[in-house]
Design a protein around this nucleic acid. Structure first.
Length: 310
DNA sequence: CGTGGTCAAGCGGTA
DNA sequence: TACCGCTTGACCACG
């Protein structure tokens, strides 16, 4: 059998197999009670220790692709809460980063819905930049070589063309070290794959295909155009299944394996190694269930727990 | 043990 | 107008 491509599966934020979380909150209202940062410090330590356990778990289970929760450092981007979340925790970042590097795990971030780079509101744009800076600092502290922040185009205020122009203009104002690590993803309502490819050609950033968003907000495009935006890097794809026909946009607990296998069939001719992030409620449990179903339904050659050749 | 409300923040879309 | 879902959940109060 000819080997065309290597597919690696990943998951987001928390492991169902571990009874821990790396996104324990420390709320702003709690901070306001006595402005005591000791409690916040304990939460940060707890989150970083949990992250290390998750990384250990990933290594043990041959999971090579993982997205860290954006909530790892609570209040990091809150204007009037100033605290050091980098140097103070250097030992944690060094140790975790070393494990990531040694295992060649690929790490990314997906800043949350409050990151709207093309907002028409100045303060929202400023906060969005602060959110991007925050994520950059974490990746930098971890010593990740291939840093990547996956973001959406954002707002549609004043129409698609004006919104795309705002995105491109604001993108160009970002510091180079931020511009260099941004990838853009199609969304489920406004900016489809074709739009995102068009923007990518303007600002030279990779395109993350979100298959589920594409199904919600379809357009015509060529897979080759997406893969080309990654140049020599491994393209990232987000895959999830709809909860049901009525709540189509909502994420299902698990992946529809038939749909997934069909998708793999569609892209195998491109002969690219690909990382596929599974975005579903049941996380690594969904991942391993999907693996079992792929093994049952196909003859794909698994070379470890989460990696197969097509 | 299950669930409803809450949390700092932006959007678009639906009932 | 109010709420939902995305990004992606935790945790507390309560029954």
């Amino acid at each position: 059998m000819v080997i065309y491509m290597r597919i690696r599966l990943g998951y987001v934020a928390i492991s169902k197999a571990l009874d821990i979380t790396s996104s324990s909150p420390f709320t702003y209202s709690e901070y306001l009670k006595d402005k005591n940062l000791n409690k916040l410090d304990k939460i940060i330590v707890s989150n970083l220790e949990a992250l290390e356990k998750i990384i250990d778990y990933n290594i043990k289970n041959n999971i090579h692709f993982y997205r860290i929760s954006s909530k790892i450092i609570p209040l990091a981007t809150k204007d009037d809460v100033e605290f050091d979340y980098i140097l103070k925790y250097k030992l944690y970042y060094d140790r975790i980063g070393e494990k990531i590097k040694k295992s060649k795990m690929r790490i990314d971030f997906h800043p949350d819905q409050f990151c709207v780079l093309n907002s028409t509101k100045k303060e929202v744009v400023e906060n969005s930049i602060k959110i991007l800076e925050y994520h950059y600092k974490i990746l930098n502290a971890l010593g990740i070589d291939k840093k990547i922040l996956v973001i959406h185009v954002g707002s549609n205020v004043f129409g698609k063309e004006k919104s795309i122009k705002r995105f491109i203009n604001n993108f160009r104002k970002l510091p180079k070290y931020i511009r260099d690590i941004i990838a853009i993803e199609n969304d489920d309502k406004v900016f489809n794959v074709s739009d995102v490819i068009r923007i990518s050609k303007e600002i030279n950033v990779p395109v993350v295909l979100d298959y589920h968003h594409h199904k919600c907000n379809e357009s015509f495009f060529d897979f080759a155009d997406i893969f080309d935006t990654w140049k020599e890097d491994v393209p990232k794809i987000h895959f999830s299944s709809p909860r049901n026909k009525k709540d189509f946009r909502s994420h299902s607990d698990y992946i529809d394996s038939s749909d997934f296998i069909k998708f793999i069939g569609d892209i195998k001719k491109f002969e690219r190694d690909i990382d596929i992030m599974l975005e579903c409620k049941c996380k690594d449990d969904s991942l391993f269930r999907l693996v079992r179903q792929i093994k049952y339904k196909t003859d794909y050659n698994f070379i470890d727990d989460t990696t197969f050749l097509v």
